[in-house]
Write a protein that binds this DNA or RNA. Sequence first.
DNA 1: TTGCAAGAGTTGTCTGACAACTCTTAACAT
DNA 2: ATGTTAAGAGTTGTCAGACAACTCTTGCAA
Lengths: 224, 224
Amino acid sequence: MRGNLSRQTAEKLYRMIVAEGWLEPGDKLPNEMELSKELGVSRATLREAIQALTMQGVLEVHRGRGTFVSRQVGEVEDFGFGTLDGVRGKLRDLFELRAMFEPRVAALACARASGEEMMEILELGRQTEACIREGRDRTQADRDFHAAIVRATHNEFMMRLLPIIGQAVETAIVSGEHAEKLAQDTLRDHALLMEFFEKRDPAGAEHAMAIHMLHAMEEMGLEK
Amino acid sequence: MRGNLSRQTAEKLYRMIVAEGWLEPGDKLPNEMELSKELGVSRATLREAIQALTMQGVLEVHRGRGTFVSRQVGEVEDFGFGTLDGVRGKLRDLFELRAMFEPRVAALACARASGEEMMEILELGRQTEACIREGRDRTQADRDFHAAIVRATHNEFMMRLLPIIGQAVETAIVSGEHAEKLAQDTLRDHALLMEFFEKRDPAGAEHAMAIHMLHAMEEMGLEK
DNA sequence: TTGCAAGAGTTGTCTGACAACTCTTAACAT
DNA sequence: ATGTTAAGAGTTGTCAGACAACTCTTGCAA
């Protein structure tokens, strides 16, 4: 099994709640003593798992009263249709946001980048491609690539916002195994993107980035 | 003080790291024994705080090695909570963000809003118009209007962006002499927007909102 | 030089205890 | 009869100490 015991416990609890209909939204969980015995972990470990689920909005803890399944859980299920996750619902939201910003950001960057910045963008793009070809981990290179593009917009808020979205997407992706399929599309998309950047064609860059986003969403089974 | 001790500890740690320059991104924290003594809490409480910050992307924990400040801390800053200050000078950046955001949001909302949500949007739009006509302060009404639209996208992360966007709106409206002409444009733009919302025409709503954004930026002397 | 083992440093988990909070219920005063 | 208070049960919050598991370095031996 992967990860901490508290991590595993959180996932187990999550499955019990949302996948199987063990508890309905609004229901109260057994108290921590009983639940920890039932799950075969210590109370401390269970508490860490509960905290994680609380931060994900799955559970609500009220001191002196108990721990409850959040009413929001049901709503998340409606969207993503699915058994596997609230993660999928969140993933769709994230990509939707990303698909909104990245193409326009690419266009702006293409129009505003200084000579130096453009060179950096192209260089980082090449590095990312190299990583994919050689089968190395492209996470860092890809992040740097997108960060360089965002930086070239000279827009402070974009620079703050997009890394956050990117990071969230990343953690979501790591929890699945879509990375393999994505790599091939990414290679093609990047080539397209680089072409328009080299030509300094904002409209082209915008469309190329939009295609990149659509490919990513398609591969992950997310619908527009 | 508010909240759990672990909550407080998390916030205290957060402030020490991002606000004051106690540690740089990538630095290693003292081990849990020392740190818990230094902060005056038990190790269990400290661990809950650390876990919370880990899930926010502020810290990274590596078993057997230690706990480190994430390299992305600087970027994560103002997202979840935390007030956005020094906004005034960055009006262009904010509106640029908004100009990307709002039109697509309008389109999504138009396509996804439930009957109830659509009624709320239209009602709030009418209220805003009324405010303008009667010369009353329309800040709150306008904010509610846009908030209702964002809510109708059913996208959690868009809603999280709302407070940031809201500040831009507020600053823009408060900033004085533009208010007069802006009000007239807003009246026309809203009418256009409402027309397409009533028809449930996403493309129309998107363009109408885009026009609204362009007018606002133009009136405020912001260049694209 | 290379490989391996021991050790120090660190986070992960367990156990048991008590404090603090919430809600119910029963006793009490009016 | 009614409103108020106090006690008690149920629950989460915090603490302390111990040991397990993992990571990296250092020194020794082949």
